[in-house]
Design a binder for these strands. Structure first.
Lengths: 213, 213
DNA sequence: TAGCCAACCTAGCACTTGCTTGGTTAACGA
DNA sequence: TCGTTAACCAAGCAAGTGCTAGGTTGGCTA
């Protein structure tokens, strides 16, 4: 109410339009922006002001849509985990043999790079730190489910003779998991390197190795 | 000089001893502490007060040994890169064939987990963000050297017929690199899982794949 | 067309951050 | 034993942090 009230900013800096599209749409927009920033700069290094800037609003306005910065990453991660578990269970439900199921899991993991690149990166980079807090205990639970799905397939393959019986399912699971979840670090959506090529090469190495037979 | 001077903290909270061991020793100690925290909590999330607490001193005292928080991670990363490049060149210098050289590179990468676990984690987690700043341009340079070393070996293997000619050296390099550098995320030094077992399993999969021949 | 309310803005609070300045202590060499 | 100095402490600053409280606007509905 002081004399200097409107001298600094004119009315022109206001967000131009405010269409009514339902809050879910705007929330999803803001989450996508936040996810991209969390993925590219890191969760801690990304400020609520960064997110708001990118969205063309002020930081305080974010709190009309979200309780906290933490609830944003919560939403991003839980959505990603639900999707991933569903896609894994879809592969299992096809009822194929161990080798084809294993290949299906690798394939669907790498394919999710296209639509969930930022979420994978966030999961890969931040989940370890977040999992300690009670709010994010579902991360540990999901982690265990993932491990069971992969190791079960590997064990079945060893039993059926399709996989070599010298492999340690737990260790090989870690290798494969780290491999497929780390690819989004260098994969660029829309680039000339197509996901199908990555899938081909990765499947070739993981299933048959680099050596000529 | 006020009356309340020594009421809050007695003399007992002071660092107990101050032996003269040369600054290099104390610096290395503090760097080890910092590296552990950077690796376990992330660089941004780790405060200079965290590091000082762990060292049993006050945050300001850190600046007797280091210019800045940034110079600490700089020291950690450049040391790690020098070591790694040296170990890679050592493997190359043995003059073995492509397959054995490839195996040697995998082996030495995984072996470095024992002595450089925290440094690998920091490199893996933070280098991507730091590389943008001029001070850390050596990270990009090292990245290129690593890529050349690995892809050269893979290309030679394809040429000699030891590796399948369908493999894409650049993509397979990424797979292998991501695999060996991500292992420190779950590897626990001193645990029952010995590095030699990890090396065995990882070499088996990378060279020959999971499938029975 | 009056009123509601989603979606913003404005301003700033309480706290944490990396880092600085000046002072203190004790190990050590002369 | 005395001056030097490495290694710390004490106190706090400026810049940022997540978040809040209250005000404003305009699309929408009754």
């Amino acid at each position: 109410m002081a004399a200097t009230k409107k001298t600094v900013r004119g009315g022109s800096s206001r967000a131009p339009a405010r269409p009514r599209r339902g809050e879910a749409v705007r929330q999803a927009e803001l989450l996508a922006i936040a996810a991209e920033l969390f993925a590219d700069r890191g969760y801690v290094a990304t400020t609520v002001r960064d997110i708001a800037d990118e969205a063309g609003i002020l930081s305080g306005s974010l709190y009309h849509h979200f309780d906290s910065k933490e609830s944003m990453i919560d939403e991003i991660l839980s959505t990603f985990i639900d999707q991933t578990l569903a896609s894994y269970e879809g592969v299992i439900a096809e009822g194929k043999g161990p080798k084809e199921t294993f290949e299906g899991l690798v394939r669907t993991s790498l394919e999710s790079m296209v639509g969930s690149r930022s979420a994978i990166l966030i999961y890969q980079n931040e989940a370890r730190f977040l999992a300690a807090e009670p709010r994010f205990s579902y991360l540990t639970a999901a982690h265990r489910k993932f491990e069971k799905i992969w190791t079960d397939v590997l064990k079945k393959g060893v039993k059926s003779g399709e996989f070599r019986d010298s492999i340690d399912p737990k260790l090989v699971y870690r290798l494969v998991r780290d491999t497929v979840w780390t690819a989004p670090r260098w994969y660029r959506p829309g680039g000339s390197l197509k996901p199908e090529r990555i899938i081909d090469q990765y499947l070739a190495v993981l299933v048959d190795g680099v050596a000529a037979h």
